[in-house]
Simulated assay, not measured.
Amino acid sequence: MSAVVHTHRLQVRYGETDQMGVVYHANYLTWFEVGRTEFLRHSGLTYRELEEKGVLLPVAEATLRYKLPARYDDWVEIRTRIEELTPVRLTFAYEVYRIPDETLLVSGKTMHAFTTPTMKPIRLSRAEPDVYAWLLAQYEGGA
């Protein structure tokens, strides 16, 4: 389990909800993407920098577990961490909480393959050893 957990807060917008004011289920995947983007940025590496190095992180698998709905105008906190890191893939884990009451609404994971811009799989530990070492530090709790 990663010791580095990044938190990002957002307020539920009207356009993210259905007629009942409940967040549409697919929007949680968008929030997961916000969580991992901000995790990387906050830790000192952006998606743009990864892409400039020729490394892409396409989503290979996503899972979500819905517990309670978020609603229009709620404040939520997305908590993101690296759950697993291997030379060929990276798995992020997410939890979405309503704040300030700390109610867990949704949890989930996304698994990403390391690829080139042409979607050829790579071993990140060989292709970009510095990036792999940086991710490993995030996974193990250092920065």
Rank of each mutant, 00 (worst) to 15 (best):
Y66H: 13
R71I: 03
V23A: 12
G21K: 13
E52Y: 03
G54I: 06
P69A: 05
A62P: 00
A70P: 05
Q11N: 12
K67V: 07
R13Q: 15
T63Y: 09
A62F: 04
L68F: 09
T46Q: 08
A60F: 08
Y14C: 08
V12W: 06
D74Q: 13
V4C: 04
E38N: 02
Y72T: 08
R65S: 10
V5P: 00
Y66G: 04
H25K: 10
N27A: 03
L50F: 09
N27Q: 02
R13N: 12
G35F: 04
P58I: 14
L29D: 02
W31G: 05
Y14S: 10
S43H: 15
V34W: 06
D74T: 10
R41T: 09
A70I: 14
V34Y: 02
T63Q: 11
W31I: 04
G15V: 08
A26W: 05
R65Q: 14
P58W: 04
E38H: 02
R71T: 11
M20R: 12
E61L: 03
R9H: 07
Y14F: 15
L57H: 08
R41H: 14
L57I: 14
R36L: 03
F39C: 06
V4W: 01
Y24V: 12
E49Y: 02
Y72M: 09
R71M: 13
L40P: 01
E38A: 06
L45S: 13
Q19A: 15
K67A: 10
D74W: 07
R13E: 14
A3G: 09
D74I: 11
N27F: 02
V5Q: 01
L29S: 08
V34E: 02
L45W: 13
Y24Q: 15
L29G: 00
R48K: 12
G44W: 00
H42G: 08
E33Q: 14
L64R: 11
L56I: 10
R71V: 07
Q19L: 08
F32E: 08
H8Y: 13
L64T: 15
R71S: 09
E16V: 06
G15K: 14
V34S: 01
G54Y: 10
F32Y: 15
E33K: 07
Y47H: 11
H25D: 06
V22S: 06
G54N: 11
L50P: 00
E51L: 01
A60Y: 09
L10E: 12
S2D: 00
